[in-house]
Design a protein around this nucleic acid. Structure first.
Lengths: 332, 332
DNA sequence: CTGAAAGCGCTTACAG
DNA sequence: CTGAAAGCGCTTACAG
């Protein structure tokens, strides 16, 4: 059994004042003389007393918890992006006296999240990803619980913060075109995720901007499994591309491995670039050119947005964060 | 603002009975007539009412939350083991109406965890790893909060569940010796983690058991960085080992990559095996022989142990789970 | 500036 | 079997 914790009554009694006063001295709300404030602060410091969050929550109709919803597609936490976000959210939450409830949800079952909401355990939710017409966002909305999506959704009434995927990928593609590539093969994942359609759009815009027609037969989307990815590369290679552009780091590594296996050299025989950077791309041989996003900043921004919303501050519905192009050996 | 939730008073009023009765009909504690129980169940089913967890917690001096403490060493969640554990713990918790608070802690600062405990936000904690003389375990113990460690600690008064690392590694080593290896080089991480010293012990026991002396100059421990790992392989190779035994999957892959880079073939020129299996070892080329542990089961067992402790049931202090040897091409 | 009292939404002896 | 009442540990109008 946990230690019998000291309560606000204990400190009130010890200090010979009322609970009301102690409460005010701690929270800073309502006026208290500087002297009593000092006394109280000193006492609670020494006895390291902190108001019981559950009781406090009940009185204020708050929980000081948020749900961090991880899509079960990522529930193995494969994506470096998701992992970095988790760390950042935890830190940001802790600094603002909030706690993070880890929740796994997907399109088939959002039961754990639903139960959590029904039980009133959180003040809001942060989604590490969302698809269009996601039951999770519907659920959150119907419960009228504040939530923020890390990523891009066409429904702009949903609070969201994302990296500027379109521009990032437009710039990367444009750079490749400027360096003389003319047959860039594009390999990407499911178009149910807006992140992928955005990247595709950036790819197309760059071509338009540079006056180079997109080689449609070189565009491979909706690659969800490794076999389908390999099949796509294999097929692409028969069409003599001069560069392979992959939509994420893991795909890039898979492709690189395949190329090596077939004795195709990067960048001598074909160039390779990635729409999403990660440490693995820096360490691979050769290192791979990529668009770099700041997952930590993204997560912190999303968290702040959620916190502001919970506290009734008005926030901008959509935020877009920058990116950085990192040129590495794979395109030199 | 969240939807104005229905309360137990609402349902009591709607059903024309007292809150007491409704509460009992829901919790199943105390006697209620079958008829009223039915009525209540039906009503709450339809209005999908669930008692507010915060209020319930306050009344019962429980939170129905546990802290999942991730060592910051793993806070990038690199280890597949940690990630699988997280998923499993979330599932198990959800099934038992508990929530999981994600907490990152390390030996330098356990502040987030301390605050969480001070505020009384959890009923217990689950540690994904612990080192001997860990401030985190000290903290938990001083607060008298139930906790369970996934891993091995010499202090047997601490609740812990682990895979049988010693036996697993003994068997793997013994197998290699039986297959004729005589100069097995061992590469491992920091001995601050008991998991590594256990594996080392298994390695030694196997040699004793098979009557083969350990080649001490081939034992490389406390390899914490990739450079130090590479230096170790390089050094080991000058001593003509016939097999490299790595303590974890990531190390194995690093080593394999290095060998390939130097044109050394596995298993023709040298054999390779790993003390910890992961999917990457199955997919690598060649696939790598390894000891396989069930992270999911480990996590669920630890969770159950924690839950039982919270509920005042007595549990066995230490549990050891099995393992499986998976022989792959790297040792054929 | 300070305090007594009500209330947050539940649970649980205690009576009946 | 059912209910009125007290209590969990806080906060916050309302008075003073």
């Amino acid at each position: 059994m946990p230690q019998q914790a000291t309560t606000i009554s204990d400190v009130a009694q010890a200090l010979g004042m009322s609970k009301t006063t102690v409460s005010r001295a701690i929270s800073g709300k309502g006026r208290v003389s500087e002297e009593t404030r000092q006394k109280v602060q000193e006492y609670i410091q020494q006895h390291n007393y902190r108001p019981n969050a559950v009781a406090r929550g009940l009185a204020q109709s708050k929980t000081y918890n948020i749900a961090l919803v991880i899509s079960s597609q990522f529930s193995n936490f494969d994506l470096p992006f998701v992992r970095k976000s988790m760390t950042a959210v935890c830190e940001a939450a802790s600094q603002t006296e909030y706690e993070v409830l880890l929740t796994i949800a997907d399109r088939r079952s959002s039961t754990p999240l639903r139960r959590l909401l029904d039980k009133g355990k959180v003040d809001g939710a942060l989604l590490t990803s969302a698809v269009e017409e996601d039951p999770v966002t519907d659920l959150l909305r119907s419960r009228e619980v504040p939530f923020v999506v890390m990523g891009h959704l066409t429904d702009k009434s949903i609070l969201q913060v994302d990296n500027d995927q379109v521009s990032g990928c437009r710039e990367l593609t444009a750079l490749l075109l400027k360096m003389g590539r003319r047959r860039i093969a594009l390999l990407g994942g499911t178009q149910r995720y807006t992140v992928n359609t955005s990247r595709l759009r950036g790819f197309e815009e760059a071509h338009a901007q540079e006056g180079v027609p997109v080689q449609k037969e070189l565009v491979y989307m909706d690659l969800e499994s490794v076999p389908s990815q390999l099949a796509a590369v294999e097929d692409a290679l028969t069409k003599e591309p001069d560069c392979l552009l992959c939509m994420d780091d893991s795909l890039s590594l898979t492709v690189l491995k395949y190329l090596k296996g077939r004795g195709i050299r990067v960048p001598q025989d074909i160039q390779l670039a990635s729409m999403y950077d990660s440490e693995a791309l820096e360490e691979s041989d050769p290192s791979i050119t990529a668009v770099q996003f700041d997952a930590d900043k993204l997560a912190r921004t999303a968290y702040q947005m959620l916190l502001d919303t919970i506290n009734g501050k008005s926030v901008k519905n959509c935020l877009e964060l920058g990116y950085q192009l990192v040129i590495r050996r794979s395109t030199l």
